[in-house]
Design a protein around this nucleic acid. Structure first.
Lengths: 204, 204
DNA sequence: CCCGCCGTATGACATCTGTCATGCAGGATC
DNA sequence: GATCCTGCATGACAGATGTCATACGGCGGG
């Protein structure tokens, strides 16, 4: 028989993290051997505990789960990565896959899928929600350039053009040009809508 | 000896809900007897299962945890209510308390506080994070009028003045007046910032 | 009864935003 | 080397947004 599966859990909300640990603790063949609350603590914890599978939330301080996934994939290629997120944003799925994730789960899927996904990735399978995959393909790739994304992200909090220009070391006109092209690419009417749509797609 | 504490769990993300159930299941004196995923399913589930404590997430479809709390407080006054939320927004705390909640927990508190809070509210105590309470008091009450809130909420998705006017059956000028006063009350420069601040405070 | 606030509305004004044409430098591609 | 794309910039213009003064009816408090 095989030994238990060693899992690393990365999730910033303690209550959710410990609850997930309790859930996985109910499984006989799974053992949560490490828990971290920050994206930038993932790699060393995975190394220190000889982990088989890393379960990563996306929204975390320090580094996102996607960034952590890429790092793990580079440094510990044998390690399997499951990305777990609140938001089923097509762009997140795409980035997670590009970062080398083996599974992508949303938190409103039934709890049973979590242990199941862990076993499947260890067996070499990939696990992704088919409808999300379809949405990701339908949306296509992120149409925004780096600069456009950067400006849009900075504009998300309601900053004015002048503030954006100062913060990004650009001229005010350039800021407006970037926002204008972003607005057109996203087929919306103003920056607020552009921010909303880009967020929904996971393109920010 | 006393019988086990019967708990109702209301949280829309299945994985989180079931994980919390697993967590509470580890406690000898606590039993999760019902789980619901919608705010408008809380009351009848609580009635049907003779629940002692209801654990309510705020963000849920159907009705918010706050609305559900108010309903429970009205219909089943003996029932204790614990509000559990991702966002430690002062305005949420205030509304939860006004709705008759007995405890207010944020999901990034340690998991141990959950069972502890359940026992405390049953003992007649109230449980709230002191720093959040301080923030709620410091912020004061929501300064926005009903209409201002309504317009701001509608403006949050990037709608233009004309769209807002049509949607709310107001003149465009009136919409601008409301947004203008909201902007001034929140001491910000434009509607986008106003939306952000109002959200952060839990005033939307 | 009067005052003040809320909801609603208008008009005028200043500023901010979004669009477009145009320009230039650097890197990639052919 | 010519061409194209990207990043950056400018100026001009139209339209959206924010401010302010003003107005009126209703409602609640003093």
């Amino acid at each position: 028989m095989s030994r238990t599966i060693k899992v690393l859990l990365a999730e910033d909300q303690s209550m959710v993290r410990e609850a997930l640990a309790a859930l996985l603790g109910l499984e006989e063949d799974i053992e949560v051997v490490a828990q971290v609350a920050r994206g930038d603590a993932v790699l060393s914890a995975a190394r220190d505990h000889g982990v088989d599978v890393a379960l990563l939330d996306i929204e975390m301080p320090g580094a996102t789960g996607i960034e952590a996934a890429a790092e793990l994939h580079r440094e510990l290629p044998a390690l399997k990565v499951v990305v777990l997120t609140t938001f089923g944003r097509p762009g997140y799925l795409r980035s997670a896959m590009e970062a080398g994730a083996d599974a992508f789960l949303v938190k409103d899927a039934p709890a049973s899928q979590l242990a199941e996904a862990i076993r499947k990735v260890l067996a070499g399978e990939r696990v992704i929600d088919p409808s999300l995959a379809a949405a990701a393909l339908a949306d296509g790739a992120n149409p925004l350039t780096d600069r456009e994304r950067e400006v849009l992200r900075a504009a998300a909090d309601g900053s004015t053009n002048a503030e954006l220009a100062a913060a990004l070391h650009l001229s005010q006109g350039t800021v407006r040009n970037y926002l204008s092209t972003a607005i057109q690419k996203l087929a919306v009417r103003n920056r607020a809508e552009a921010v909303r749509i880009a967020r929904e797609k996971g393109w920010l």
